[in-house]
Design a protein around this nucleic acid. Structure first.
Lengths: 136, 136
DNA sequence: CTTGTAATCAACCAAATGGTTGATCAATGA
DNA sequence: TCATTGATCAACCATTTGGTTGATTACAAG
């Protein structure tokens, strides 16, 4: 019954939560404003209990929060968690682009002068880069 | 042998692919440049076959591509697919923010005389929003 | 107190997921 | 040719996931 509130684990649950198309539709609906479980369940063919479970997954992932209004439990979107996801994706996407950029400049330099600056060269990627250029 | 038709289905697979922490680590590694299956499998405790399966999932989701170099099959990151993911997330995140913005301006209008509101409690304002229902 | 409504809990089930091991394919190099 | 290396295929297994139905809790209104 470990509750493991690790930040990395949160990211894990968030990605996991968005993996399901039903939950993504719920997120999409919530972006227009809060809604109750019944309202959220309405567009789906599945049972209300199933939707309730989906909401629990989203809540546990930190993507939504819930308040109380009499018997109702309105669900609210928490955009901060979504931001963390885009941050993760963009991180590696941008590193990848950066990698290409430095390769380009490296090639440009080698034409102008001697390529003595092998230096650090963490670019295992560079070595691998060469192996590409294949048929498409 | 259906070959992944709809674009919506692609998004589905992409989110599903990123739900697994092993696959996200693979993506992180690939952001530094292409790598072979053996290279990718090295940091993990799991078998090479398991990593191979993960790569197939990523490939089927359009997140990576593979080329050929002798026996090796280098895996390359495809940043375009990652961009599609951030696009989806940002869409609803921004709609949500927009919603807040209009709520704020609405409140601001009602108190044109003075800008006393310190953003107050938007959650309460939202709760009243459940008037927008689509119970059919 | 009783009824009705919103939502969750509990037990259960089928299918998908992630992992394993052993065999096989494909390309290289002796 | 034959052994080696890189990677996949195939069968199998344990756990997780997403769904169901039926009972139960929590409020609000008669």
């Amino acid at each position: 019954m470990i509750v493991d509130p690790s930040a990395d684990d949160r990211l894990d649950r968030a990605f996991m939560a968005l993996a399901d198309p039903v939950r993504r539709r719920i997120i999409a609906r919530l972006s227009r404003g809060p809604a109750t479980v019944n309202e959220l369940a309405d567009p789906f063919e599945i049972s209300k209990q199933a939707v309730s479970k989906h909401i629990q997954v989203l809540e546990h992932a930190g993507l939504v929060t819930r308040t109380r209004d009499a018997q109702r439990r309105p669900v609210h979107l928490d955009p901060a968690a979504l931001e963390a996801l885009t941050a993760w994706i963009d991180r590696y996407r941008l590193i990848h682009e950066q990698q290409f950029r430095s390769l380009d400049s490296l090639l440009a330099e080698s034409t102008t002068a001697e390529a003595s600056s092998e230096a650090s060269d963490p670019a295992v990627g560079e070595a691998g880069r060469r192996t590409e250029e294949e048929r498409s």
